[in-house]
Write a protein that binds this DNA or RNA. Structure first.
Length: 135
DNA sequence: CGTCTTTGACCGGCGC
DNA sequence: GCGCCGGTCAAAGACG
């Protein structure tokens, strides 16, 4: 966008249906939400980590996408996803209401790419990890 | 410049 | 049949 040509602003020709949900025109997100294709079994592991940091650099980059409040917990739940393309791993982090210093990290899926960080760095962390349940 | 974060809104499934 | 919940995506903004 270096050129100077100032492109005209998006003409809001449509009647001002500003209010209303009118999210974006042809975005039909909900329609083709191909969510059924990938039904590969996804191992779900829940871990209890004691850390003030929600996102522990376990060797992978996580991109936060969405935050929703849960009834069980007076705190909002955070959803993370691996920024890798071949990595369909999802991470779910929730803070315990009893111990705000404890976070429940739920990993879904497995990584398909080599980790950039030394796993030894997680060794000490894994030690603190507490194997909770396996679905 | 690139990357990441945050918020809002929407949809699907399920229960009663 | 309807309502509710949880879950996901998109865009914009901010920062290094």
């Amino acid at each position: 966008m270096v050129s100077g040509a100032a492109p005209p602003p998006p003409p809001e020709s449509g009647a001002g249906s500003s209010s209303g949900v009118g999210r974006e025109e042809t975005k039909g997100k909900g329609s083709a939400r191909g969510r059924g294709s990938r039904k590969a079994s996804r191992p779900r592991f829940a871990f209890q980590t004691k850390s003030e940091n929600d996102v522990l650099d376990d060797g992978y980059r996580w991109r936060k996408y969405g935050q929703k409040a849960v009834k069980n917990s007076a705190f909002p739940r955070s959803y993370y996803r691996c920024t890798h393309h071949t990595c369909n791993v999802k991470k779910q982090v929730q803070r315990l209401a009893k111990d705000t210093s404890i976070v429940v990290t739920t990993y879904e899926g497995v990584h398909n790419h080599p980790c950039e960080k030394l796993m030894e760095a997680l060794n000490p962390i894994l030690r603190q990890l507490q194997f909770l349940s396996q679905l």
